[in-house]
Every structure is written in structure tokens, then in C-alpha cells.
Design a protein around this nucleic acid. Structure first.
Lengths: 224, 224
DNA sequence: CGAAAATATGACGAATCAATGACAGATCAC
DNA sequence: GTGATCTGTCATTGATTCGTCATATTTTCG
């Protein structure tokens, strides 16, 4: 889910941009001053930034330089002014693109996509298995629910990965014992216990699981 | 010395662009058709491409797609048409930027510079791996935190590089032993010890590491 | 309905795991 | 050669996790 930070002091413009971008599938962070935007970005970084040039307090140029000092995030300037001098100055400051207000949302979105494509080429993402609000990154040893990371123990993690690898298929307790626990022996109840613990961590309502469901008489499966 | 390939069928425009860009310090390759440009680029690749959309024979869109198939070269479209539809289509095809004729050379040059900066970030001359306030230059054998250089021992450095090469991915103690210590043998606790020492040097608060984190039961990883 | 089977859950001691400080041998720089 | 630094091993400590069991709860089916 791509996120974008919009720094723009005019409430009307900012809101309409935010709405339009949300329609395009972005999660939008908003800020009405450069200071607010910079703090926002430090705490909870968006992966793209849209910034107006004319801002009260710290202006857009300085804001761009500050963003550049701290990171590689793609920056698009949105400005009412279209003279070459401003465009050059903004790009020199470290912006990646410059569009003139009023902007066509489709164009803006396409420009953002182009930028994101470039930026992504630099840092290949770790493969992610997605089950609705549940995301599993086996190689990162990382699991998130609603975007929030949850801490799993090794056994829980291996169990989840095994189920995720066979998403939608039922795995019997015996199969799980063999694959998650190296030895095939052991009490089948053991699986129940760990499934229970896993549910406490990854399910919104562990009592009626949405992802990790029981198939009575057969075993468990991870729902898509 | 940066090079740019200009694909444009109108001789007057192409020539004036070429002259202007040479003034800006570029070495300019010229082509008046997409075919010529593609062949040219294959033989002697420029590191940026400027392409008109309206070309005889293969048109600009197809040209962009072909360039993208074979490489990552930054592409800027120059077109007389300014409607959103064309802009979106060109960016979707794989262009990185779109400017409308007539163009201010200063702006064009600034946009090219911004693009080159971004492209370079993807494949830096002196490769620098950046993790927030932690920067690693493997080639230079250099590590800085908050811009301040820190002195690492050889083992610590190799360990850090190995983790950085697989940024975001968990590496087990066994994997690290194999890759950082040439032999795969040895006590896995050894890894713990060196991780601990590394943390003392690169983490602001070694007790709760931000970069070099433990994934209990699995190993260690370097956080993006 | 009521019994039986299957599954869920809470609790607890044992086992495992990671962090750290200490230390001796190895290596390096001078 | 000597002192400083680095490396690998070990033991200790505190925290987490595991597997087992006993006890609920749910589902199935006679």
C-alpha cells in the first residue's frame, strides 16, 4: 500500500488532493506546514512526498533540502508558479519532479508511479505473502496485522509459514508435526496449543478466527 | 561526462536541443527516427534519453517500451501535446518525465540532472548502503553513524556488510558463520558476541537496537 | 436431549535462547 | 619484542518459550 505525504497550506487544495489520491489507492498523510510535514515524516515516513513551494514558516525549498538530508524519498513539487527559475531551483534543491497547479490527478498519479518505479529499483522489497490484513515476510521473519508488527515465537512463525505456503489447503496435525517440528513424533494436541497461541496474536477475534481456521476432523488451514 | 540521446524527427528542433544540451555539458547523440535511436542506443548507450512522441515509423510510445525492455536508462519525453492522456500514457509506457514543447533548456537540464541523481542513487558509483543514520560504504571500508565515522574491526565490518547485503532479511547464526567466518564450523554464540560488540559501536542505544535487531529463534537482521 | 469426540484454553515447570562480562591466546603495529 | 587490539570460548544471568496436562467448550450424532 503506497503512502504519500501532502504538505500544502491551503486547506481546500490539500483536502481535494488527499481525496483524489486516496481514490488512486494511496494512503495519505497530511501537513499544512513544512515543520509539521518534516516531523510527521520522521515519525512515520511516507514513501513519497508532495510539497507546495509557498508555505508559511519554512518554505518549500528548505523543506526539500531537509527531506533530502535525511533520506532518499521521492519528492514532487506542486506549485502555482510555472517559471523556469522556480522549476530549476526546486529540482536543484533535490526535488524529483515539478508539476504546475492546477494538476490533473491522473497525471500526478502517473508521475508518482513513475517515480516509485525508479525508487523501488534501488531497494528490492522482500517478498510478502498477503492474507487481507495479515502480511507475512518469511525472509524478514516479520509478520504484520493491520500494518502493525506482531512478535511471534519461532514455532509460531514456522507454523504460520507452513500454513501460508499451502494457503487454502488443509494440513493435518500429523503433517504439521512433521514439517514444523523436525521429528514427526509428539502429541497432536501440541499443534492445537500453538495454533491457539498464534490466533491470540494474529486474529482480531481469536474466538472466531478469520484466517487460521479449524477444519474439524482434518486439521487447520490458512484462509485467503 | 554525461551523455544524452535525442530522438526527434524535426531537424531544427533536434539541432537546437543538441546545441543547447552541449552548452550544458552533455555529449549528445542524435537520431531522427525511433529505429535509428534504438540501434544507436544498443551500440553506444547514452545514459539518458530524450524522445519525441510523434515520430515517423515506430512512434514514441513503442520506442519507450522497447528502451525499457532492454534497460533502466532514464527517459524524458518531449512533446508538443500537453493533454493528460498523453502524459499518463507516456509515463505508463515507462518514461520518467514528460515536458511540453517549447521547453526551457534550463528546466530540461535541471530535470535531467534530477533524474540522473535518482538513477545514480539506484546504482551509486561508490556504493553506499543507507539505513537511516547508518551508512556503509563496503568498497571504501567505511561506516558512519550520524555522519560520524566509526571504527570497526574486520570481523565486525564483514558481519555488518553481510547483514547489509541482505537488508531486511533474517540471517541465521549458521548462515552468518558460513559467510562471515569462512568455515561453517564454530560456536553459534560467537555470532552473538560480535553482534553485541557491533551494537556498541553502531547503535545509539545498544540495549534496544534500531538497526541490528534480534529475531528470536531465527537470527539477526539489519532493519531498513 | 445427552453422551462422546474433537477442539480450545489456562497454568506451570523444564528447556531454550540471547545478552554480557571476563579471559586467554592470536594478531597487528610500531 | 612489546603493547595494544582483536578474536574466540566460556559461564552466568534473566527472560522467553516449549511441551504437557488438566480442564473448559464446542460440535457431532445417536
Amino acid at each position: 500500500m503506497p503512502t504519500v505525504l501532502v504538505i500544502e497550506d491551503d486547506d481546500r487544495i490539500r483536502l481535494s488532493l488527499a481525496l483524489a489520491l486516496e481514490d488512486e489507492g494511496y494512503t495519505v498523510h497530511e501537513a499544512s506546514t513544512a515543520e509539521e510535514g518534516l516531523i510527521n515524516q520522521r515519525k512515520d515516513p511516507a514513501d513519497t512526498v508532495l510539497v507546495d513551494l509557498m508555505l508559511p514558516g519554512i518554505d518549500g525549498f528548505e523543506c526539500i533540502r531537509e527531506l533530502r538530508r535525511t533520506g532518499e524519498v521521492p519528492i514532487v513539487v506542486i506549485s502555482a508558479r510555472s517559471d523556469t527559475h522556480d522549476i530549476v531551483a526546486a529540482l536543484e534543491a533535490g526535488a524529483d519532479d515539478y508539476v504546475v497547479k492546477p494538476v490533473a490527478v491522473k497525471e500526478l498519479s502517473a508521475r508518482l508511479r513513475a517515480l516509485r518505479r525508479r525508487a523501488r529499483a534501488a531497494a528490492p522489497a522482500v517478498p510478502t505473502l498477503i492474507f487481507g490484513d495479515l502480511e507475512i515476510r518469511p525472509e524478514a521473519g516479520e509478520v504484520t496485522v493491520h500494518g502493525r508488527p506482531v512478535a511471534l515465537t519461532r514455532t509460531e512463525f514456522r507454523l504460520l509459514c507452513e500454513l501460508a505456503d499451502h494457503a487454502g489447503r488443509v494440513l493435518s496435525r500429523q503433517q504439521l508435526l512433521e514439517r514444523v517440528w523436525d521429528y514427526g513424533a509428539g502429541d497432536e494436541r501440541l499443534v492445537d496449543v500453538h495454533v491457539g497461541r498464534l490466533r491470540q496474536k494474529i486474529e482480531d477475534n481469536p474466538a472466531s478466527p478469520e484466517h487460521l481456521v479449524t477444519v474439524r476432523g482434518l486439521g487447520y488451514k490458512l484462509q485467503r
